[in-house]
Amino acid sequence: MLDRYRDHLPVSLRQLFYVLLSDGVLAKSERDYKRMCEYVGMARRSGRIAWDVIRDDTQIAVQAPPSFADQQDFWTAVARAADDYRVDRQAGQPVRLELWCETAGMVPQLVRIGEEFGISCFSGGGFDGLAGKHDAATRAAAGGLKTCILHLGDYDPSGEHLFSSLAEDVVAFAAAAGAAVEFERVAVTAEQVVTYRLPTAPPKATDRRSFSGTTTTQAEALPPDILAALVRTAIEAHRDPVIHQQALAREETDRLSIHDRLSHLEDAGRRPPE
């Protein structure tokens, strides 16, 4: 499976579980999930599975301030930064896009897709993240364009209510700031469950909220390649390809100019003092 989805690594343990479930290797049970986690853990410890192909969504990373071995190390870092120079790839497009997903573990994969188009990705889990909703409205007001939020979430009562709650609050906050925001459901939909034969489960008996379906499906049940294709299709439906290519061309021109100026600075630094 890791070879099959090597272009979409790293994956989470839940994504791995759902793919193996679809392949008929495992049963949809807590016992099989825990057993898979144990085997993956042993495989990582023994070196049979590389550490960087499985994403640990519980780890919190705090980076130290940047430091350099010497001045040459600093200028090497500056050159690398010049290589990464980018313009606002959403400038000039008809709408500004954001990617939102219910599951925080899916963010790294979505970031990889969105960065090609200059699109930020956020996790919108939970019903009480008012600060995050207000921040989204503030970004929409600052952008000066209509904002479209492409959303991915579970197909279950919680996922549907989360989507409607997010949309209602963000749209209201944005309207109060004089901005326009719309939400678009990218996944998971009832049609996708049937089309891709995704594993399902009955709704929880304790959850009595209204729900459009009769069975539930987790967003991570979508295979990584299908998920990437769905997101890319949704993005490209809102992009003008000519404007996008013009942004990429401007980036390359600017990048060459920056490197040229850096080379002059480096040459000047090598000259003996007068």
Rank of each mutant, 00 (worst) to 15 (best):
D128L: 09
P157G: 06
S164W: 02
D169Q: 12
V111M: 11
V231G: 05
V19T: 14
A176F: 06
D73T: 03
E191P: 06
Q192A: 13
V11Q: 06
H161R: 14
C37H: 10
A247P: 04
G269D: 11
R80N: 01
A229N: 00
R55I: 02
F183C: 01
S29F: 08
D169P: 00
G105K: 04
V62H: 12
Q72F: 00
G269P: 02
H161P: 10
A142Q: 14
T217D: 09
Q71V: 07
A187F: 01
T138V: 15
A77S: 09
Y85Q: 10
A43M: 13
V231A: 05
A142D: 11
T214E: 15
A27C: 09
R45V: 11
L162R: 02
L248N: 04
L152G: 06
T215L: 10
P224R: 05
R86G: 03
Q109D: 01
E98W: 08
K146W: 02
M106P: 00
R55K: 05
L262P: 04
A64W: 03
A140D: 03
G24V: 11
T58S: 14
A141W: 04
I113L: 12
V181Y: 05
V188K: 10
G118W: 05
A81H: 06
F122H: 13
A50E: 14
P66T: 11
G153S: 11
D254C: 12
S29A: 10
A104N: 10
A247Q: 11
L13P: 03
Y155H: 15
E236G: 03
V95Q: 13
G129A: 14
T138L: 13
A141P: 10
R86F: 04
G143R: 14
S165H: 10
D23A: 14
A175W: 08
S22R: 15
M42A: 15
